[in-house]
């Protein structure tokens, strides 16, 4: 008899759990990376690259910019828009539909008929979508960053990256974008399992995040964008789209994000465990 078939005890065998997690991620990764909605994610991640590419190829008055460090400033403002639109909506498209799309396709029962704890199933599905989103946005962010630095030539760019703060900044942006995917992803997973029609809660979340600059200081702390902005290596200039407020320490942002994601996944798992599967008319 094979190993999996023999594991029927109450205690969750760690190795078995890991194999089940990997099995779930394997199935869901294909769904997150190759389904029609992943095209929307790729568009959101790479459309800004096309825009920046045109900018990089267009001659501009060099006296307005001192060099790659100024390009980096431009990137910071663009990155804010990238997080607010591309990352936000990609998270929405990928994570809200983790369960709902399978209910629509009438294929969720295949998962629910396997001997996997539903908490583990939720984690596996979340992890697969996160890997898909994070990989896409890490590539997108890196490509946009390098394209923004490219007009000053390879030598200046290399110098800025490896002898200046360029590479450290890039790594910090990448951490931010991954945490953005993780944070928004966890929220959208929760919205997806709690609400049959998630349009209103998702729209409310967007308004909340967008209204962050207008909120009192203590309410600012209750938004994802606040913690993400605290991770930016280059401070933002003040403006209508930019969050104004005391940034949280970097460690607090990262630890807070992890605690928050764990909590949200816990609630989502509890909801999924109690869920009745009914393929009604969606």
């Amino acid at each position: 008899m094979s190993e999996a078939a023999g594991s029927t005890g109450n205690t969750l065998d760690g190795r078995l759990a890991l194999r089940q997690l990997v099995g779930t991620m394997r199935l869901d990764l294909r769904r997150s990376m190759l389904s029609p909605r992943s095209l929307a994610v790729y568009f959101l991640a790479f459309a800004p690259l096309a825009l920046v590419g045109v900018w990089a190829l267009t001659p501009f008055p060099t006296d307005e910019f001192d060099g790659p460090q100024d390009g980096s400033m431009v990137f910071t403002v663009l990155f804010q828009l990238y997080i607010r639109v591309s990352v936000f909506f990609s998270g929405l498209f990928l994570f809200v539909s983790l369960y709902r799309s399978e209910i629509l396709e009438r294929s969720l029962h295949y998962y629910l008929l396997t001997p996997i704890r539903r908490e583990l199933l939720a984690l596996g599905k979340y992890a697969a979508a996160l890997i898909a989103a994070a990989a896409t946005f890490v590539v997108g962010t890196t490509a946009i960053y390098l394209t923004v630095l490219s007009p000053w030539g390879t030598a200046a760019m290399t110098n800025y990256l490896f002898s200046g703060p360029g590479l450290a900044n890039l790594i910090q942006y990448l951490i931010t974008v991954v945490l953005g995917c993780a944070g928004y992803g966890a929220l959208f997973l929760l919205i997806g399992v709690l609400f049959r029609n998630p349009v209103l809660p998702a729209a409310a979340l967007w308004v909340w995040e967008a209204a962050n600059p207008l909120l009192p200081s203590f309410l600012k702390h209750l938004s994802v964008i606040y913690y993400l902005q605290s991770l930016y290596p280059v401070p933002l200039a003040r403006g209508l789209f930019e969050v104004v407020g005391d940034p949280a320490p970097m460690w607090a942002s990262i630890v807070g994000a992890i605690v928050f994601i764990t909590f949200v996944l816990g609630v989502a798992s509890w909801r999924v465990r109690k869920m009745d599967l009914a393929y009604g008319g969606e």
Binding site: E3, A5, S7, R19, Q20, L27, R30, Y110, I116
Partner: peptide, 19 residues
Amino acid sequence: PPGLTCYQFIYSYLRVHGY
């Protein structure tokens, strides 16, 4: 689930079983 062959369909869910 969309896009799967018969083999992938059965095999994939057996992997979720933990085999």
